[in-house]
Design a protein around this nucleic acid. Structure first.
Lengths: 242, 242
DNA sequence: AGGGATCGACTAACGCTGTTAGGGAGAGTC
DNA sequence: GACTCTCCCTAACAGCGTTAGTCGATCCCT
């Protein structure tokens, strides 16, 4: 469906070589294979066997292309959404972890997503899923919205902070492990008399066990939600009040 | 102290025109005045009345310069840290708001800070302050570290998500208000039968009242901390066990 | 079937970026 | 006075996003 009209041997073309879908697909391919730093208008165009200026027929900016990629990314994430079980706390936790897993598995995903609010079908699918789940759990509309917003920010923030150093380390050509532990070493070497608590907490702040930090923050946030007012759940045995 | 050895009329120089401190100061000046997109090696060099390649004597990379700027930013933020009152919840809340205020007041600060873990004195001052406060409140070392980490991520994430669109809108030359409400309109115009909850929550998700969302998430997180075990506070009247 | 409009690619070029190579003036040291 | 070290310089490179202008292929209309 995508490769409908590529270049022909004689240099002429059949029908559009580039469509918006093909553009997104090509962009995501470059992103996954070579990373965001290698994603230029020229490289995406090359992926479609086309020259860079052609892309400007379909897209105003590189910025607009990145917006599309962000939504495309979410669209792929929507395909991995976990099923809703009925216990909001379990469901919300699993949603957060699934989102995190997805972001970690897609190279530079958070660098594209962070600070962007995609407004396409990808974002809609993800958001609707989460909002519906929270609604069914009895949360109010505003609370559900804020929970969704906050949680997505939290998860992306965490993944960003673990994905970016990897990108940087790869770019610098040093082993990833060295890069992350180096910061911890630096902090541990600070003067312990001026910064006693900092030095003592060096490992907890910089260690590679981000899962643990993520779990802590996520669970504290979930703890904070239990006191929120919730609409009582309809009894499955009783007939609804109609 | 900074402008010690600028260019002389005859083109020769006295002593170093560029020092690491001057470099950071110049970088922050450009950042504040013209934004991150205008912060190039050439523009920072121009701020010091010097050519771009000279900077590479003091700094390996632009990346390294940005690391320094990030720490410099935190150093300035450390000067606005609120006093500790003794009630951990009040103190932590005020700390979060002060940090947020500071980040919002410094153009593109979060774009520099996000995903970076500065390892200089600026970061040390901020972290030590917060860790000491949590320690005094009786929190365990690990909990305090995780709280600090999570909170900084949360605050930067929020500010980033409100600061980035402003940068983008300014770059595109459209009013900031239009840019933020446009996303809400787009979402509100989604088909309400496929995305009922999303459409209903459009305003809550995209409205300009980020303070409200921030308050919600912050307070939920703080709520989640009350159940954590805490060392009992030493009675101010009783003599310490020495 | 032919003519005109439109779509969607092309080449060429601009100014900007981060970065490297190599040169050279001034200060400090023996 | 010669040597060395520090620190800035000019020149240049490859790559970037983006714009202007061109031109073949296709579709619609008569």
């Amino acid at each position: 469906m995508t490769g409908k009209g590529r270049a022909r041997p004689d240099g002429t073309r059949k029908r559009p070589a580039v469509t918006l879908d093909a553009l997104v697909e090509a962009g995501l391919a470059v992103l996954e294979r070579d990373g965001l730093d290698a994603l230029s208008m020229r490289s995406v165009a090359a992926e479609l066997e086309v020259r860079a200026p052609s892309l400007y027929w379909h897209v105003r900016d590189k910025e607009e292309l990145l917006d599309l990629l962000a939504d495309g990314l979410l669209g792929r994430g929507a395909r991995e959404l976990p099923p809703t079980l009925g216990d909001w706390r379990v469901d919300l936790r699993e949603l957060a972890w699934a989102f995190r897993r997805f972001l970690k598995n897609n190279r530079d995903s958070t660098r594209v997503l962070m600070g962007r609010f995609p407004s396409g079908p990808g974002m809609a699918a993800v958001m609707e899923h989460q909002l519906a789940m929270l609604h069914e759990a009895g949360f109010g509309r505003q609370d559900a919205a804020y929970i969704t917003y906050g949680l997505s920010l939290l998860v992306s923030g965490f993944v960003y902070s673990e994905q970016r150093p990897i990108t940087a380390a790869v770019a610098a050509g040093v082993p990833v492990g060295d890069a992350v532990s180096a910061i911890g070493d630096t902090i541990a070497a600070f003067p312990a008399d001026t910064y006693p608590h900092l030095v003592a907490a060096a490992r907890e702040l910089t260690g590679p066990d981000i899962d643990e930090r993520f779990t802590f923050v996520l669970e504290r946030f979930l703890d904070g939600l239990v006191a929120l007012p919730r609409r009582p759940k309809a009894e499955p045995t009783a007939a609804p009040d109609a």
